[in-house]
């Protein structure tokens, strides 16, 4: 078995996350879909780290995990502030800078 199935799984998850991020209505689920896309990136990193027997890829994944934890904290705070301001978490309500 080589790493192609892992990479294909990552691609599928990434495109599903893309669909979710672009079509979901609630900001929370858009945020979770973005996390799904991040995680498929993690999977690619780990697949290549395993293939090349190099721990560097795993260190990258560790960084990405820490960053997404920070992102989760700030994202939650932003959504809370947004709900206070607009009374809803629907992403359509964020139209102040709409083109």
């Amino acid at each position: 078995m080589n790493i192609a199935p892992y990479l294909l799984l990552a691609g599928f998850l990434f495109s599903l996350g893309l669909i979710g991020a672009l079509t979901r209505r609630s900001a929370i689920l858009v945020f979770l879909s973005v996390e799904l896309m991040l995680n498929s990136g993690n999977l690619v990193f780990l697949a290549f780290a395993r293939a090349l027997q190099d721990t560097g890829g795993a260190v990258m994944v560790l960084f990405i995990l820490a960053l997404s934890a920070a992102e989760a904290a700030v994202g939650t705070a932003i959504i809370v502030a947004f709900i206070r301001k607009r009374g809803t978490a629907e992403i359509d309500a964020a139209n102040l800078m709409r083109w």
Partner: peptide, 29 residues
């Protein structure tokens, strides 16, 4: 990393999302 993945995502991030839904009472319409 698989251990951390469960703790961080299935634990922390999802708990934050569910907290948001429950505290703000928001549901997609």
């Amino acid at each position: 990393l698989s251990f951390i993945q469960v703790i961080l995502y299935a634990g922390a991030v999802i708990v934050m999302a569910v907290y948001l839904v429950m505290s703000q009472g928001f549901e997609e319409r």
